[in-house]
Amino acid sequence: MHPFQYLAPTTVKEVVSTLSRYGDRARCLAGGTDVLVQLRGGRFEIDALVDVKGVPELMELRLGADGLHLGAAVPCYRVYESPRVAKAYPGIVDSASIIGGIQIQSRASIGGNLCNASPSADSICSLIVHDAVARIAGPRGNREVEVAGFCVGPGKNVLRKGEFLVSIFVPKPAARFGAAYKRFIPRNEMDIAVAGAGASVTLNAKGKIVAARIALAAVGPTPIVASRAAASLLDREPTPEAFARAGDIAALETHPIDDMRGTADYRVELSRVLTRRTLAVAAERAKGAK
C-alpha cells in the first residue's frame, strides 16, 4: 500500500482546506470499512487520509422538530440504538442494522455508505424514499443536494474538489407515513445485496395512498428511483394487488447487469418481489404512524 499521512482535523473549514490542498491525493475516512479495504486493494493511491470523526458536526445525531440530522460519520449502531430515532425512522433502521455484522456497524456510517456510491449500498435507497438531503461543505460554501441525485455512477458522487459531506438531513415524515427497506442476499447476514428495494407510502385519513417513493439497489449503475411504479399507487388503496402491480412496473424500470452475485434476469425478478414486499411493510408502518 502506498504510504499516506493520517490527518485528523477538528473543524469543517480545516477539512475543506485540507481536501482542497491535496485534491484527489486525499480521501475522507469515516468508519474506514470501504476506504481502508479499497486502499489496501490498490483501488487508488493517496497521500493523505482525512479522518472526519473529530469534527463535531459529523458525529451529531439529533432528532429535531424539522427532522433527523444525521452527521455523515455517525456509525450505524448509534442509529438503531437510539430509541427515539429508531421509533421515528424504522425504514432507516432497516438499513443501518444490516450493513455488515456488529463489528462493521461499530464503525460504518450511513454517510460513508452514501459517499462510496456503490450501486448495492443498503442505506441509499432508504434515504431516497425519505426524501433525504445531503448537506455538503466546500471551498465555495455550503450546498444541499437531494440524496436521489447524489450518486452519478458506480463509486462516483457529485462532490467536487475540496467538498465533503457534513450531514444528511431526513425531513420529519408526514402523518401516516411509513417506509421500509429489504434486500436479497444468499446468506442470512454479512453479504452484499443481489438486489434491494426501499419504499415509502403516505396515506390520507381515508387510508388512500397520497404519496409513494420506490428506490432500487444493485439493479443499475446508481440506485434507481422507480418513479413510474410509485406513481401507479397514487389515489389507490394499499392493497396486495396495487403493490404487485407497482412491483411489475418497478421491474421494468431497472437496468441490471450479470455478475457473480446474480444474473440480470434474476435481479429484475428480485426487484419485482422486493418492491411488493417493502411496500407492504411500509404501508403497515404508515397505518401505525400518527
Binding site: 474506514g32 489496501r40 455488515g100 463489528q103 464503525r107 454479512m190
Partner: peptide
C-alpha cells in the same frame, strides 16, 4: 485483512471492531 472474518476483533472504547479496518 478486509473486515470479513472477525479474527482481528478487539474492543475499542467498549465497542467491538475489526482491528484490520481501524488505523
Amino acid at each position: 485483512n478486509d473486515g470479513n472474518c472477525g479474527a482481528c476483533t478487539v474492543s475499542l472504547d467498549g465497542r467491538i471492531v475489526d482491528s484490520c479496518l481501524v488505523l
